[in-house]
Computed example of a mutant assay.
Amino acid sequence: MYIIAVDDERPSLNVLTGAIREGMPDCSLSAFSNPLEALYHAQNSKVDVAFLDIRMGDMDGVSLAEELKNLHPKINIIFVTGYTDYTLDALNLRASGYVCKPVSAEAVKKELKELRHIPESENNKPVRIQTFGNFEIFMHDTPVVFHRNKAKEVLAYLVDRRGATVTKKELATVLWEEREYNRNTQIYLQILISEMIRALNEAGAGDIIRRQHNSLSVIPDSVECDYYNFIKGDPHTIESFHDEYMVNYSWAEMTAGTLSRQKDGRSTQEKQ
């Protein structure tokens, strides 16, 4: 379980993180005294649960919760407070729960047992992406359906970039090498992006994409992917690669070549 804890008062943050570690010792915990740093972390990492102090200086907990929910729609928000003046705003956000200061391990355990959204097991991710051979994406082993092939290609390129931020202009260049990046191209690209997001949302996989003002990226930790497992060095996945990677798309040939060389290099080392 991936948890973040945010409190701009360092002593309170230390008590909170201590309670979380005692209550959920196997979790992956990141602590922040600066809400903006927590938000940046969430833009680039998987977050299942956020313990947020409601009253903070630069950004209060309710505002931070709104931003986190935009990034991770199924995130569980647990407010940490000794105050009641934000209760209505917090209820409107459909928070998973509340703990009162000073936070105890027992209170943490209780809230984590009653989460609104149950985190998927790290070894049982519902979204599976296949890149060896043809590109496909599955939700609980059911293929995600895209009404436009180019919308599916947008997702494929994001997967290829492994979480790196991709601008809309870069996407347009990949999709249409010779096409001018004018107003018409921008409008059509936005239609494709909207179609991609719609297809993912309908399948229940919308939270694998991180959206920013003029760019997109996939969240690698949110999916099971043969390409990513290859990069991690999984022997079974490496053995299953037969020089075919996203054969639907010509731009994928460079990655295919890189994977082939890496596999050949591993085979050579094993023989020596």
Rank of each mutant, 00 (worst) to 15 (best):
R148H: 06
N149A: 11
N149Y: 06
E153F: 01
E153G: 01
V154C: 05
V154G: 01
V154L: 03
L155W: 03
A156K: 00
Y157F: 13
V159M: 08
V159Q: 04
V159D: 05
D160N: 14
D160M: 15
R161T: 13
G163K: 08
G163E: 11
A164Q: 15
T165L: 15
T165Y: 14
V166Y: 09
T167P: 02
K169R: 11
L171K: 04
A172W: 02
T173R: 11
V174T: 10
L175W: 00
L175Y: 00
L175N: 01
W176D: 00
E177Q: 14
E178I: 09
E178G: 02
E180I: 06
E180D: 12
Y181Q: 02
Y181L: 03
N182W: 05
T185C: 12
T185N: 06
Q186G: 07
L189P: 00
Q190D: 08
Q190S: 08
I191G: 09
R198F: 13
L200Y: 02
L200G: 03
N201V: 15
E202A: 12
E202G: 08
A203H: 02
G204E: 03
G204F: 04
G206F: 13
I209M: 09
I209V: 11
R210W: 13
H213C: 11
H213W: 13
S215A: 15
S215P: 08
S217T: 07
S217G: 10
V218Q: 07
I219G: 02
I219S: 05
I219C: 09
D221A: 15
D221Y: 14
S222A: 15
E224G: 10
E224H: 15
E224W: 14
C225F: 07
D226T: 04
D226F: 04
D226N: 05
D226W: 04
Y227T: 03
N229G: 08
F230D: 00
F230A: 03
I231E: 02
I231G: 00
I231K: 06
K232S: 08
P235I: 10
T237C: 08
I238T: 06
I238Q: 04
I238M: 10
I238N: 03
E239D: 09
S240Y: 08
S240Q: 09
F241C: 00
F241H: 01
D243E: 14
Y245E: 01
Y245N: 00
V247A: 07
V247W: 08
V247C: 09
N248I: 05
N248Y: 07
W251Y: 15
W251S: 11
A252I: 10
E253N: 14
M254D: 14
M254E: 14
T255K: 12
G257L: 11
G257F: 08
T258Y: 14
L259H: 01
S260D: 02
S260N: 01
S260C: 04
R261Q: 15
Q262A: 10
Q262G: 07
K263D: 00
